[in-house]
Simulated scan of single mutants.
Amino acid sequence: MSEIEASTTLLNRVDGSAKLQIKSTQIICSVTGPIEPKSRQELPSTSSLSVIVRPDVGVTSTREKNLEEKIRVILNQAIAGELYPRQNIQVTLQILGAGESKNYTVKELTGMVNCSYLALIDAGVALRFSFGAQCFTIGHDDVLVVDPTGEDLKISKSSHVVVYDVKEGKVDQLLYADSLGSFTEEQVYEVLGKAIKEVEGIHAKFREIIQTKVEKDYVWQF
């Protein structure tokens, strides 16, 4: 499992925030809401979701817009939007360090999914389940690499991101999978199988982070 460094409750003017670092990839996420939306965002029976991705260098491009749509697809499945009808939840993700070239987005997408989870928990937004993500590459020697470096990506023949939901500490269902490059059906199943153990390990780390936050936030004196 990847070495994850994370902290929560970093920003003052939002409802929840988190910072996450996995190797050279660093992401900070803020969550605001549920709040009253603009009229065009209002949905009668559920919440609307706004996702903004800001690059580490330069201005927002189609690359970040593509990432926003992927994050939106994942979070819409996880957030219990029916509890917040006619409200909006805003998720803003700032890339501090990509850890990969502009030709790839797998490390950033993985970091943003995991950082969003911690920020949503910090904001107290109701979720249907926990979730976690991990990325992989397959080299030209057909070796599967977990949480690849930027150099691993450059010499890979395919890259993959897998997101699972987690219930009671165990992976339940596949939420999202994104693969790019040349690979076989058997290799995809290998990636999905390996991701189960990886996501469960990441979720266990998240539990430790959240438990530490709760212990700091709620100190009871008798």
Rank of each mutant, 00 (worst) to 15 (best):
S116F: 05
H160Q: 07
I22N: 06
E108A: 12
W220D: 11
T62P: 03
W220C: 09
E198D: 09
V125C: 08
I71E: 03
L180N: 10
T9S: 15
S116G: 05
E69F: 11
T92E: 14
N88S: 13
Q173W: 01
S158F: 00
K154E: 15
E82W: 10
T60V: 15
H140R: 13
F206I: 06
E69H: 11
L67A: 08
L120S: 03
A204D: 15
L10Y: 03
T149H: 04
D172R: 09
Y176E: 00
S156I: 04
I155Q: 12
F129E: 05
Q77Y: 06
S179E: 02
L11N: 10
I27R: 04
S7E: 13
S179Q: 06
S17T: 03
S116D: 06
V171N: 02
A119I: 01
E36D: 14
V143A: 11
E168G: 00
F129K: 10
T8Q: 13
Q94T: 12
S159H: 14
E69N: 13
I95N: 07
K38L: 11
D172P: 01
K194D: 08
V125N: 02
Q87T: 12
D147E: 12
P34Q: 08
S39F: 13
F222H: 09
G139A: 01
I4M: 12
Y218G: 06
K23C: 05
Q41H: 11
D147P: 03
Q134P: 00
L144Q: 02
Q211I: 08
E151V: 11
L93K: 00
E108N: 03
V146H: 07
A18G: 07
G169F: 09
Q26W: 05
S48L: 11
V146E: 10
V145F: 02
Y176Q: 01
K205T: 14
A80V: 07
Q87I: 02
S61L: 00
P44G: 08
K170L: 10
Y218N: 13
S39D: 13
S159L: 06
F206T: 03
E108Y: 04
D217A: 14
T212A: 12
R86K: 14
D165I: 03
S50E: 14
V125F: 02
L67G: 07
C29L: 04
Y218H: 14
L10W: 04
A78W: 00
V143N: 10
I95C: 15
V188C: 04
R86M: 05
G169Q: 06
K157H: 05
V125S: 06
G132P: 05
Y189H: 11
S45D: 11
E36V: 08
G139K: 06
W220G: 07
V91K: 06
A177Y: 10
A80M: 10
A78N: 03
L10F: 02
V14K: 01
I202V: 11
V125A: 04
V106K: 04
G97N: 10
S30I: 01
E190I: 00
E151A: 10
T46Q: 15
V51M: 04
Q26F: 09
Y218V: 12
G33D: 04
R128P: 01
Y84F: 15
E42S: 08
D147Y: 07
V57T: 12
A78I: 15
E208P: 00
S61N: 01
V171D: 00
V166Q: 02
A78T: 08
T92P: 00
L43F: 13
T212W: 08
I155E: 13
E186R: 12
V57C: 08
I202T: 02
T8I: 13
A123C: 09
